[in-house]
Design a protein around this nucleic acid. Structure first.
Length: 426
RNA sequence: GUGGAUAUAGCUCAGUUGGUUAGAGCGCCAGAUUGUGGCUCUGGAGGCCGUCGGUUCGAAUCCGAUUAUCCACCCCA
């Protein structure tokens, strides 16, 4: 086929067969978050570019080379959101929700965009599920969202999942620590890889992320943030650990977790899958108490996380997990000629009115082809409507699984029968 | 951004040293069976051989460029 236009690079069509899996996961995510009092927020895909420059940091890779940024017709620089948090926080501040009933708990499923080289599990358009709690200073807020994540993964049946937490300190302890760590790495400057030498000046903590063996071994001897926490930050971490105990959530402290976005303070955490060749992070988040002020808002404590939907789906498929079972009933109304079309429309409508999926022939096929189509599209029951049935005001019902047939009157019994089927299936 | 592989029907792929009108399996549509799905048989539709250019009497096949996809690296949620 020679279409005049094809899918844009890095974009994905989610077709029936696949879309049901998304629907299932999204429902689990939303329902679970609702149980903790989270409400859905929807924000625009497009934001002014400076929002992301401020939130992610102007020198971050995301802003420097991965954003879809362009001028709109009024010559304003706008960008497709590369992540979910900034837009949500902007919306909260702009609509004055920070002055309302706090803590405010919000969730979202957003499409996000990054101009990267596409690879399996990393497309240019991707979906992120996120939770944010605004106005929660206590470590209980941190613990609670971690608990939501943990419960979601448990509900989905994800295996080999570990929670790692860390503290990256506040402005003060971060400053002291950055000095210490810069001193340490400067001693090894010659041995570091090129990228890390650059990191040494810009953001030395990121050296921990390097996969270069040499850099890794040097990192091992480096001082860790936890040893440099101020009293407040240290207490916060201790409280978090205690709350996690109460929630009965296993965790370990990994002092080397440094998340890509540098707006985090105090708590950072990741859920990591350990069954594959290399560990894979499927959920990352933390506290970002300073971002609200950074964006020009009032002082407000924030904590949140994001889950990459594509990655979550991939892991579930790798682990052969179930995406729920469909308990819908689907009935196909087979009519044996044009003369019975109107009646078949009426019957289909009666079924839909009681919440049963109903289809009928709309292309004028013969009986055999109608049944074939019905079967292939997964129908549970076929209803036959022909001259014999019309005369007696009945239909013939066929159970497609067993192949058995019986006659059903078109009075009230008709609805009663299918409602009954529905109830036994639930 | 770097390297490697690939591109032929809706899908998975054959296609000889360059040689008539481009092939199979699956899927799709229909018939065999004028009131019944899964099995079988028969027929049919569906192709600018990714795109552009070059070599040649002749290109799906050789050469160049370009685009896209996959894998690894780089980077990163």
């Amino acid at each position: 086929m020679n279409l005049i236009s094809k899918r844009i690079r890095g974009m994905q069509d989610i077709l029936p067969g696949e879309s049901e899996k998304w629907e299932y996961i999204e429902n689990v995510l939303k329902e679970k978050a609702k149980l903790f009092g989270f409400k859905i927020i929807r924000t625009p895909v497009l934001e002014h570019t400076n929002l992301f420059e401020r939130s992610s940091g102007e020198t971050s890779d995301i802003v420097e080379k991965e954003m879809y940024t362009f001028l709109d017709k009024g010559s304003r620089s706008v960008s497709l959101r590369p992540e979910g948090t900034a837009g949500v926080l902007r919306a909260v501040l702009e609509n004055g929700l920070q002055g309302g009933n706090l803590p405010l708990k919000l969730m979202y499923i957003s499409s996000c965009y990054r101009y990267e080289k596409p690879q399996s599990g990393r497309l240019r358009e991707f979906f992120q599920f996120g939770l944010e709690v605004f106005g929660g200073k206590s470590a209980l807020a941190d613990a609670e969202i971690i608990c939501v994540a943990r419960s979601i993964f448990d509900d989905l049946g994800i295996k080999n999942l570990e929670l790692e937490i860390n503290a990256v300190g506040c402005k003060e302890c971060k400053g002291v620590y950055n000095k210490a760590i810069r001193n340490y790495f400067t001693a090894y400057e010659e041995e570091l890889c090129g990228v890390c030498r650059d990191r040494l000046n810009r953001n030395p903590m990121r050296i921990f992320d390097c996969k270069n063996e040499k850099c890794k071994s040097i990192s091992k001897g480096a001082p860790v943030v936890i040893e440099y926490l101020c009293k407040d930050c240290a207490t916060h971490l201790e409280n978090l650990k205690e709350y996690l105990e109460v929630f009965n959530i296993k965790h370990k402290v990994n002092p080397y977790i440094v998340r890509g976005l540098d707006y985090y303070n105090k708590t950072v955490f990741e859920f990591i899958i350990n069954n594959s060749q290399s560990p894979l992070t499927i959920c990352g988040g933390g506290r970002y108490d300073n971002l609200s002020k950074e964006l020009g808002g009032s002082d407000m404590c924030c904590v949140g996380f994001g889950i990459g939907m594509e990655r979550l789906l991939m892991i579930m498929q790798d682990q052969n997990l179930s995406f729920g079972s469909k308990d819908d009933i689907y009935v196909y109304v087979v009519s044996l000629g044009e003369a019975y079309k109107n009646k078949s429309i009426e019957i289909s409508q009666r079924l839909r009115n009681i919440g049963i999926i109903a289809q009928q022939d709309i292309v004028g096929r013969n009986l055999k082809s109608q049944v074939k189509y019905a079967d292939k599209s997964g129908c549970n029951y076929c209803i036959f409507l022909g001259s014999q049935e019309m005369e007696n005001n009945v239909v013939k019902v066929k159970d497609m699984a067993s192949g058995s047939e019986f006659t059903l009157g078109l009075g009230d019994d008709f609805e009663k029968y299918f409602v009954g089927l529905k109830n036994t299936k639930l």
